[in-house]
Design a protein around this nucleic acid. Sequence first.
DNA 1: TTGAAAGCGCTAACAT
DNA 2: ATGTTAGCGCTTTCAA
Lengths: 338, 338
Amino acid sequence: MVSIEDVARRAGVSTATVSRALSGNGRVSAAAHQKVTEAATALDYVVSSSASSLASGRTKNVGLMVPYLTRWFFTSVVEGAQQALMRHGYDVTLYNLSGSVAERESVFDVFLQRQRIDGIITVSLKLSGTEVERLHAFGKPVVGVGGPIDGVRTLTLDDDAVSSIATSHLLALGHTRIAHIGGSEDFDLEFHIPTNRRHGYEMALRNAGITPRPEYFSTADFTIEGGYHAAKQLLGSPLERPTAIFASSDEMAIGCILAARDLGLVVPRDISIIGIDGHELSEFFGLTTVAQYPEKQGAHAVKILMNLLVPGKHPEIPENTPLGYDLVVRSSTSRPPE
Amino acid sequence: MVSIEDVARRAGVSTATVSRALSGNGRVSAAAHQKVTEAATALDYVVSSSASSLASGRTKNVGLMVPYLTRWFFTSVVEGAQQALMRHGYDVTLYNLSGSVAERESVFDVFLQRQRIDGIITVSLKLSGTEVERLHAFGKPVVGVGGPIDGVRTLTLDDDAVSSIATSHLLALGHTRIAHIGGSEDFDLEFHIPTNRRHGYEMALRNAGITPRPEYFSTADFTIEGGYHAAKQLLGSPLERPTAIFASSDEMAIGCILAARDLGLVVPRDISIIGIDGHELSEFFGLTTVAQYPEKQGAHAVKILMNLLVPGKHPEIPENTPLGYDLVVRSSTSRPPE
DNA sequence: TTGAAAGCGCTAACAT
DNA sequence: ATGTTAGCGCTTTCAA
């Protein structure tokens, strides 16, 4: 193992100068900087993270907490955050809360306590009061993506605006019988996935002079399968059939498309379908959607965290940059049948 | 911060004893062990990972290297490995190679070198000669999942057996015109996804006295979309249409199902379809598949790694436990049309 | 079985 | 701008 002393010796300076030159903390003459850099390169020197952490209290490591990994949104956020962190020289430690209760507890009681991370990014996490407490007691900066956490700076999509846009798109096409598949409440209890997109939908309808009909509202679990079953109910009922469905996620919307097909309905001729997400599968299915950009959200969270970690060193982030989203119109929506 | 000294004082022993009692290295009397444990619990003491790493050279942290995250197989392996590692008290650092070339290099040159991990698990990684060298120079145990790496113990599905089973299932149903969608070579160049499942398919055919027809072979990129386009070609061609398709992945197989539907073909009446994976969507689509279990593969890799890390402490792993797989018959396969 | 003490490799006062 | 040096909190000889 090549140590800082080896570099110092080769560069003909003290270890302190090497440390300063390589870390960028403290002033070093150009000449010294040059010698140090050369020596370090020649020796393939990389600081030992444990030694550095122990001495400085900084770890150059950030924790990423997710409810689980096998969901497009979560993985995308993680991917975006991970790449951004790497660019800042940070490692990423993954905390997956999908295990047993005991395991989940140990994340808070043991893993977070061992001084391995400088900060945390939580993704769509629904935390208990105790967990939030422990998170704060941890004393390191925390940034959340998706779903508010008490006392934590969180990035959340403007659900009202997004669902209002989706609904308005259908209204503008001339639809009046618009159904909505939202998330079920008990789903929201486990991890935070917005179940409150219903509000924007109803507002948009009301603004258009339409009273939301309860029989046009249904809930599912955000998956293709869930959306499929909900849509079957909505479309198969002998009541006046809706001419459009707005689903709270692309996966559910894809489920709707498949359900419509199985019922012999043609999309969009007989039924228009719109989702929210910009899921990787949405293009293939020709799904109109309001795209959100989870990778960007992850990267954005990193920016904020970096500001908290090394104040002043990074460009200031406006306190509340809203998260971006775009209506992407494809072939699953059109004017309603005459 | 509560330190080892606080615990030692409270327990009335030396820091050395505390260390021994808590780590399990070195003998400690039952009485001392008890006192230490109590004191540690009372004080909410958790060892500082950097201090411990610096002193011992062990980090209790394992690196997980993936080509990228947004693919069912990779995430599932990561999830399985992560949970298993947590149970052993190990943290997981995620190295995602999906970024730019420079970023990919920095993983090997910087991130791996900073002494933060005790070992590495690679997932479906295709590494250059230099990268493999660096990995070995790193001097820590490496275990691979999916795709062989020179000099690295790797877990790989028996592709021959798996594709032979899939093909045999179709043969046993009476199919003789069986097409195969494999992975494209250039896809394999980037990250390792088995493109050699063709062999088992052809062997099975030959054993049944059937000569593989080149026009029944096609390749795609393992996605739904790729499978869809390949299937359209296979099924839309004016040649004698195959009565069954064996796709190298469930996502491609799902693409086949959708393509068949769009062509007005009924699955399985007109065309039988089978995949490989046991993908989370396979059940919904009624897809017959040869399921593999990526979470288990991840957990299995951890077992092997633990043995390498702390030899003797964990149950011995037979040198070559084959990875499990199962034929799961659903509604996408049946006897061929008369 | 236990304790004393010497580091592990680095950073950050402090002094120059 | 640079060097000296005292720790950071733990593990691990070594001696008892």
